[in-house]
Structure formats: structure tokens, C-alpha cells
């Protein structure tokens, strides 16, 4: 059985005098212990809202969450605020995008870490502090006992993100959600943080949901990848299959727009035409169809369903990219 089972999750933002916005529209996926699942897509596709909904961190007013998200068989979406507070941080940890703003500037990081340990593991202040030092050491921060007394502005960007990861791991959660954990970091630090996350997942059998718009991160981290577009999953595949044979025109477009070392000199990148503003609502057809090079007449009339292909992938497209047509890719 999967550790996290998300079924038909929808999040709608209800606004007075304005039409309701459907940010997440019937998403389903599973996460197994020790595996990494990617949620990939551009800004506004609903990837962060999905994670906030699972964490119960969306504002209560003006949001309608429906569907189900079960962690080890117990439903998360219908927990009371108090129950959620008890389980967040303990069973699910979360690492945020910007490590500078995600740490409290006026509280030493040691206090911020040991606070979580005291809260969820019931350790004494003294033991919690020792545990916090051990965690900092674990995530690769040198001289942890001294760092405990320091403030976030005294740490480098990479160390801040390590400290945030230490906080998220403080109670050995079974599920870790990383929401663009490397976006605010430079490339070398990015690589370090990713290998740290990979290591932690492998060692502790933690399940990881990796939210990112960076295909490089996906290629290096994820076992299974969900590509989101306008609040729906448009393609789901194992990493290897996805990169070698992207089927959905959006996925293929994303990959074509990434610079590659093995592409011929002087060749221009191929961006995806149009912008998110061109989308049509899913009720009227495929949201991507106005930007899609493969669009058929049917695409603007009826939305495709998520269907399993012969290769075992899941795909939401009337006219997928031909599997044989795509370029061979040297895989890592």
C-alpha cells in the first residue's frame, strides 16, 4: 500500500463577485516509502497548492478542498486544525523555496529546531538541543553546536537550506514535501542540497514529493514524474520513460526548451508558443490546445481523459507526440 494516496484532489478559490478559480482539478497520485515523486510544471499550474492542501496550510476562508489524501490510510483533508497541528512536522515535513525568508530572523536556529523536537517528540529542552546539534551535523553543517546559537542572517544560503531540511527532518517524518527547495540557490549549492535529499531518502526510507519547475532536478531526483498543466496531471511516467519518450506535447515542449550540451552549435532553443494566459478552461477542451503544435479540432471541443498507454504511462492527450519521432537522448 502506498504511504500517501491522493485521490481526485481539487482546490478551488472562491471569490466574491468574481468567478471561482480552479487551481487544482482532480489530481490523483501515490507516493511509496523510499521513493521520490515529482510534481512538475510552470508557475500557476497548481503544484504548490497541491502540497499546501496536503499539509492543510491553505487559508480556510475562500478555499474549497475536495477529494482525499490519505497518509498511511488515514484521511488528512478532514482533520481538525488541532489534529493537523499535531501531525504536521511529525509525520509530514516540508522544505520551502526561499531559505532566507522561511527562517525566523529573530530566533536562533537552534531554538527553531529544538522547538519542533520538544513539541513532537516530548524531549526536554536540553535533550532537544543536543538532538538539534546532531541534526545539523547530519545535514552537513560544520561546527553544529556553535551554529545552534546563530541567527539565519549569519548563515550562507546553502547552510540556511540545510538548516531548514534539518527542521523538516527533526521528527523523522515518513513523508517529506520539498517545494522548489533549490530555486533560490546557486548551481553548486543546488547540487549539494539535492544529493543531501537523495541520501536522506535512501537512508531513512522517507517518501519525498519533489515540487519543481526544473527538469534538471527531476532528472536527478525523481522515480516517477507527474507533469501538471493548468491544475491537471497531463502526463505521468517513470523518469527514464518520460525523458526518453515524452508523449504529451507540453512535456515534449518543456524538454525542447531546455538547453542541452549535445545539441548542435548555434541551434536556437524551441520555446513553447503563447503563454498560460491563452489557456481555455478544461470544460471547453484541452487547456493546452491553444498553444499546442499537435492540436486537432477535437482538442478545442472535448477535454481528453487521463488514460493509460500501451507503455504503461498515463497520458491526457488526443494527439500525443509520436513515440518514435523524438530524438534519442543519452541518459544518465
Amino acid at each position: 500500500m502506498a504511504l500517501l494516496e491522493v485521490r481526485d484532489l481539487s482546490v478551488r478559490f472562491v471569490r466574491r463577485h468574481e468567478p471561482t478559480v480552479s487551481a487544482v482539478d482532480g489530481i490523483s497520485f501515490d507516493v511509496h516509502p523510499g521513493s521520490t515523486v515529482g510534481l512538475v510544471g510552470e508557475s500557476g499550474c497548481g503544484k504548490s497548492v497541491t502540497s499546501l492542501a496536503i499539509m492543510g496550510l491553505l487559508p480556510q476562508r475562500g478555499t474549497e478542498v475536495s477529494g482525499s489524501a490519505k497518509l498511511a490510510g488515514s484521511e488528512l483533508l478532514r482533520l481538525s486544525r488541532r489534529e493537523f497541528d499535531r501531525r504536521r512536522g511529525k509525520e509530514i515535513g516540508m522544505v520551502f523555496q526561499d531559505p532566507l525568508t522561511s527562517l525566523n530572523p529573530v530566533v536562533p536556529i537552534g531554538v527553531q529546531i529544538s522547538e519542533v523536537i520538544e513539541r513532537h517528540r516530548g524531549l526536554s529542552r536540553r535533550d532537544a538541543k543536543r538532538e538539534a546539534a546532531r541534526l545539523l551535523d547530519r545535514v552537513g553543517i560544520p561546527d553544529p553546536t556553535r551554529r545552534l546559537g546563530e541567527y539565519s542572517h549569519q548563515l550562507s544560503g546553502g547552510m540556511r537550506q540545510r538548516a531548514l531540511i534539518a527542521m523538516a527532518l527533526a521528527c523523522e517524518p515518513r513523508l517529506l514535501i520539498a517545494d522548489e527547495p533549490t530555486t533560490a540557490l546557486d548551481v553548486t549549492i543546488q547540487a549539494q542540497i539535492l544529493s543531501l535529499l537523495r541520501e536522506l531518502v535512501a537512508e531513512t526510507d522517507t517518501a519525498l514529493i519533489m515540487i519543481t519547475h526544473d527538469l534538471g532536478v527531476v532528472a536527478g531526483m525523481c522515480d516517477e514524474v507527474n507533469v501538471l498543466y493548468a491544475g491537471r496531471i497531463v502526463e505521468r511516467a517513470q523518469r527514464h520513460e518520460l525523458f526518453s519518450r515524452p508523449r504529451h506535447p507540453y512535456t515534449a515542449g518543456l524538454m525542447a526548451s531546455v538547453p542541452r550540451l549535445d545539441s548542435p552549435r548555434g541551434q536556437r532553443l524551441a520555446p513553447i508558443d503563447g503563454s498560460v494566459a491563452d489557456n481555455i478552461p478544461w470544460e471547453r477542451g484541452c487547456a493546452f490546445s491553444p498553444r499546442c503544435g499537435n492540436a486537432l479540432a477535437v482538442c478545442g471541443q472535448r477535454a481528453p481523459e487521463l488514460e493509460t498507454t500501451d507503455a504503461g504511462e498515463q497520458l491526457r492527450c488526443h494527439n500525443p507526440v509520436d513515440a518514435t519521432e523524438t530524438v534519442e537522448r543519452a541518459d544518465d
Binding site: 497541528d85 504536521r88 516540508m94 520551502f96 522561511s102 519542533v116 531548514l164 523538516a168
Partner: peptide
């Protein structure tokens, strides 16, 4: 509405704290 309060809530920190 700040990031670090959201992060604290994501860690299940008590409302009082």
C-alpha cells in the same frame, strides 16, 4: 502572511508559540 510563519506552521509549531 510571511514565509517563516508558514514554515513554522508546516512544522506543526503550537499556535501560542
Amino acid at each position: 502572511a510571511s514565509d517563516h510563519v508558514l514554515a513554522a506552521r508546516a512544522l506543526g509549531v503550537r499556535q501560542r508559540s
